[in-house]
């Protein structure tokens, strides 16, 4: 391949897809988690309307990730999915329920409370399952000769339950700061009120996970307390973002809390990536072990490089078209 390492290109693409998904579906899942705590039904309308034009575009990143993994890193696909079998089902069931609820809540009056429930529970279950996947990834998988050999519930440990609730809190934070940006009046006031609490919750989980992770996985310990000190930059920057969120909420800034939360996510994510790199199926398999044949990676790369700029342009355009505040009692016109 003349020095081009396709595995690294694909790792970057998949890594980019994962963080895009987490950020973009994160805030709409977060709104679902916050749904039952909303002050009134009008606020719920605003919450849903604020994500209605974009949420299904957000979820397409998940589908691309699933198919892309099969094409580029089949080992990830064929180890993670069996190992997380029950979790994957819960994730998909949650996403389906909330997707259907999204559509039919708008068209429904008498049955609206049912769709509210489906939206909230679907979002909460999907967020928890994704967080548990992160925990399971940090723990590693029992793999022998490229085949998962563990049990059906190996992934479900106190640690992964913690990461599951942690991501729920994190998504709720993203949702709350998104709402600050997109709403006004009593809805925005409510979002300002809950943000510091959610931030404290996220930081508490963040702290416990950071202290716990090196014990769950000795390789991670080695990475962090070995000789590469530069990686400490990421947690420091993440904490900086957390301070910024707090300050921005206190001074009632509208866009900054969300931007800083996105920063918090990106630096935490990069911290997680450098803890593991280049291992992609912990504890033993690297991105090169997990790769499909080079000719397959190349064949797929052509199409993906063609379509990603189009999807990004379209996504940016959608967000541009639907910029601005969502008012109580109206949708997008």
């Amino acid at each position: 391949m003349g020095g081009i390492d396709l595995a690294i290109i694909w790792a970057v693409i998949i890594g980019f897809g994962v963080i895009m998904y987490v950020l973009m579906d994160g805030f709409d899942l977060g709104l679902g988690i916050l749904f039952p705590f909303a002050p009134d039904e009008a606020a719920r309308d605003v919450m849903m309307n604020s994500v209605a034009p974009v949420w299904d575009g957000n979820e397409t990143w998940l589908v691309l990730g699933g198919a892309g993994l099969l094409g580029a890193f089949p080992l990830v696909y064929s180890v993670f999915l069996p190992a997380l079998y029950i979790g994957v089902f819960l994730l998909l069931a949650g996403l389906i329920f909330r997707g259907v609820a999204f559509e039919f809540r708008f068209k429904s009056r008498a049955n609206r409370h049912w769709w509210n429930r489906a939206f909230c529970w679907g979002s909460a279950v999907a967020a928890f399952a994704q967080g548990a996947v992160v925990g399971a990834y940090i723990q590693g998988f029992a793999v022998e000769d490229f085949v998962y050999v563990g049990g059906p519930l190996d992934w479900l440990t106190p640690f992964s339950v913690l990461t599951g609730f942690g991501l729920m809190a994190g998504y709720a934070l993203l949702g709350a700061t998104w709402l600050i940006m997109k709403s006004e009046g009593h809805v925005q006031a409510w979002a300002y009120r809950i943000t510091p609490t959610l931030l404290a919750l996220v930081l508490a989980v963040f702290l416990i996970i950071s202290l716990w992770t090196p014990f769950v996985n000795p390789d991670v310990w080695e990475r962090w307390f070995g000789h590469i000190q530069l990686i400490w930059l990421f947690p420091v920057l993440a904490l900086g973002c957390a301070v910024l969120i707090y300050q921005a909420v206190r001074s009632r800034r509208e866009g900054l809390p969300f931007v800083a939360t996105v920063g918090l996510y990106i630096f935490t994510y990069l911290g997680l990536v450098v803890s593991k790199w280049p291992v992609i199926v912990p504890p033993n398999y690297t991105i090169w072990d997990a790769s499909s044949a080079p000719e397959s990676q190349l064949f797929l790369l052509i199409g993906v490089l063609f379509v990603i700029p189009i999807v990004l342009t379209y996504t940016a355009w959608t967000y541009w078209v639907f910029r601005g505040k969502v008012k109580v009692g109206e949708g997008y016109h």
Binding site: L70, G71, Y77, S78, S292, E295, S296, F299
Partner: peptide
């Protein structure tokens, strides 16, 4: 995966 992965991904 070497064959099926690209086919399904191209569908997506």
């Amino acid at each position: 995966a070497n064959f099926l992965g690209p086919m399904l991904s191209y569908e997506v």
